[in-house]
């Protein structure tokens, strides 16, 4: 029971939050860096704007789009609990019960 709760905590919540948070950080840092370069009057400022600021913003946008098109599922987040094949599934007892009942009737 406690194991299931732990998976819920670690698995489902970050699935929803993490990509947005990561994208937000990347884009915010990128935009702030880009803005800072506008106050620097030097050819290197443009290269820094595109090379570093632009890369951060692009990565953030890609992270956001990835989360959008992957339906909110994050590749790096732990996946929710998958029942082991050896363990009985919730449907199994009723099925067995049904078969058992049929057997009994026969």
């Amino acid at each position: 029971m406690s194991n299931v709760l732990e998976v819920d905590k670690l698995g489902y919540e970050p699935h929803h939050h993490r990509p947005l948070r990561q994208a937000g950080w990347l884009i915010s840092l990128g935009l702030l860096f880009q803005t800072a370069t506008l106050f620097w009057s030097h050819p290197m400022a443009f290269l820094a704007f595109i090379g570093f600021g632009g890369s951060l913003v692009a990565l953030g946008i890609l992270r956001y789009l990835w989360s959008l098109f992957s339906g909110g599922q994050s590749a790096d987040a732990p996946s929710p609990a998958v029942p082991s094949p050896a363990a009985p599934s919730p449907a199994a007892p009723s099925l067995r019960g049904t078969i058992g009942a049929e057997d009994k009737d026969d």
């Binding site: 937000g24 935009l31 880009q34 956001y64």
Partner: peptide, 14 residues
Amino acid sequence: AFFVLPLALTSFGV
């Protein structure tokens, strides 16, 4: 917030 504005701001920055 995550797509349109960052792209627009980067374009204005250029």
